[in-house]
């Protein structure tokens, strides 16, 4: 549970870090993405972008661009439509906190 250790360490330095409950929410939302982006966002092939350790803002921007159709895609435009702003925020924060 690397993220737990990381979360605990981050908590000590930044008291404003999201609570454990939110971390579980992000983890659970992100778990579905693993079938294409790899366990904990560590990609298995070179055909998809590894999400682990990507800046949170980048993930949020891309997900919203897929959702509103400004970034063309084979699949992500359909997947992104299933996630609200706050869900995107939670999963992006979780991926950003993962080791590459």
């Amino acid at each position: 549970m690397k993220f737990l250790i990381l979360a605990a360490a981050t908590l000590a330095v930044f008291p404003a870090f999201p609570s454990f409950a939110q971390d579980v929410q992000g983890r659970n939302l992100a778990a579905g993405c693993a079938i294409c982006h790899g366990t904990e966002g560590r990609a298995v092939t070179r055909d998809v972008v590894p999400l682990a350790g990507l800046p949170k803002e980048h993930i949020v921007t891309q997900m919203k661009a897929f959702r509103d159709g400004t970034r063309p895609a084979t699949v992500m435009h359909q997947i992104a439509k299933g996630y609200s702003d706050s869900q995107i925020d939670a999963l992006a924060a979780w991926f950003a906190a993962q080791k590459r």
Binding site: A34, A43, T45, D47, V75
Partner: peptide, 20 residues
């Protein structure tokens, strides 16, 4: 063919996510 490439990528990735 793009979907074909992603189909292979999905297969290898879900194998690794489930069994790796």
């Amino acid at each position: 063919e793009a979907e074909g490439t992603y189909a292979w990528s999905w297969a290898r990735t879900i194998w690794a996510d489930s069994f790796g």
